[in-house]
C-alpha cells in the first residue's frame, strides 16, 4: 500500500519539493505543522493541567472535568474553526484558539481521572508524613497519575495534529496546505503527498509520546520495577487503570 502510494505520488518523491527554495517546501510545512501543534499543546497544557490537578485533588467541580471530555469529543472541529474564523476574522489567531480549545478536554479529563485513581491511602500517608498539600500533589499524586496524564497529552497531540490539518482550509500553514491546495488545484499527487505525510507525522508523534511515557513514568508506578525485582503477583493498580481508559 505504501509502495503503491509512493509510486503514484511524484509530488512526494520529487526532490524539488523537499528543498528550501520550493514555494511550499515539505520540510518547512512539517516544521510549521509541528510548531502549531507544540504551541497549541503547551497553551492547552498550561490551562488544563493546573485546573485538572485542582479538580482532581480537591474533588470540587468534578462535573467540569467529567463532561469536558464528552463535550470536546462531540464538538465538530470544522464547525468550531469556522465559527471562530467568522466571529474573529482571518489570520492565525482563530485557528490557534480552536486548536487550544480542542486540546484542553483530553488533558483535563485525564489529569482529573489520573488523580482520582491515586490510592487515597498513599495521599493519607503523605499527609501523615507531614507533607503540605502542594507537596502531596507534586511528589505523590502527580507521579502516580502520570501514566493517565501522559495518555491524555498524547490524545491531545493527535487531536491537534489532525485539527491543524483541517485548519489549512481557513489559511493555517502546515501540511494541511498540501491537502487543501491539492484539492483546489485538482492535483491528486499533491493531496496524497500531504495525506501520507500527515498520517506519518501523527503516527510518529504517537510513537514518540509512548516512548516519552515510558521514560517519565516511574518504574514503581508502571509496574516494571516490581516484575524485575521479584516476580510478585501484584502489579501496580495504576497500570491497569491506564490501559483500560486509554481507548
Amino acid at each position: 500500500m505504501i509502495v503503491r502510494l509512493a509510486t503514484d505520488t511524484p509530488y512526494l518523491l520529487d526532490p524539488e519539493n523537499w528543498t528550501d527554495s520550493a514555494v511550499t517546501s515539505i520540510p518547512e510545512l512539517i516544521g510549521t505543522h509541528l510548531l502549531y501543534t507544540a504551541l497549541a499543546l503547551v497553551i492547552a497544557a498550561a490551562i488544563a493541567i493546573p485546573v485538572g490537578l485542582f479538580i482532581g485533588h480537591t474533588g470540587r467541580l468534578a462535573f467540569v472535568a467529567i463532561n469536558a471530555g464528552n463535550v470536546g469529543r462531540s464538538l465538530p472541529t470544522l464547525g468550531l474553526i469556522s465559527f471562530l474564523v467568522v466571529l474573529i476574522g482571518g489570520g492565525l489567531f482563530p485557528a490557534l484558539i480552536a486548536l487550544v480549545i480542542l486540546a484542553i478536554p483530553p488533558i483535563l479529563t485525564s489529569t482529573y481521572a489520573g488523580l482520582r485513581a491515586v490510592d487515597p491511602a498513599a495521599v493519607d500517608a503523605a499527609r501523615g508524613m507531614g507533607m503540605r498539600e502542594l507537596q502531596t500533589v507534586f511528589t505523590v499524586e502527580v507521579p502516580m497519575a502520570l501514566p493517565l496524564m501522559m495518555s491524555g497529552l498524547r490524545n491531545a497531540a493527535l487531536q491537534v495534529v489532525a485539527t491543524a490539518t483541517v485548519a489549512a482550509y481557513v489559511g493555517l500553514g502546515g501540511l494541511g496546505r498540501l491537502l487543501v491546495d491539492g484539492l483546489a488545484l485538482n492535483q491528486y499527487d499533491r493531496v496524497v503527498a500531504g495525506a501520507v505525510l500527515v498520517a506519518a507525522l501523527a503516527i510518529l508523534i504517537d510513537l514518540l509520546a509512548e516512548l516519552l511515557q515510558r521514560v517519565v513514568v516511574s518504574p514503581g508506578v508502571s509496574g516494571r520495577a516490581v516484575t524485575r525485582r521479584a516476580r510478585v503477583a501484584h502489579p501496580s493498580p495504576l497500570t491497569e487503570v491506564s490501559s483500560g481508559t486509554a481507548a
Partner: peptide, 19 residues
C-alpha cells in the same frame, strides 16, 4: 488499531481512494 486511530481524519479520507 492504535496506529490506525492516530491517523488524522482528513488524511485518511484522502488516502482511502488511493487504496
Amino acid at each position: 488499531s492504535g496506529l490506525l486511530y492516530s491517523i488524522p481524519s482528513l488524511a485518511l479520507f484522502l488516502i482511502i481512494p488511493g487504496i
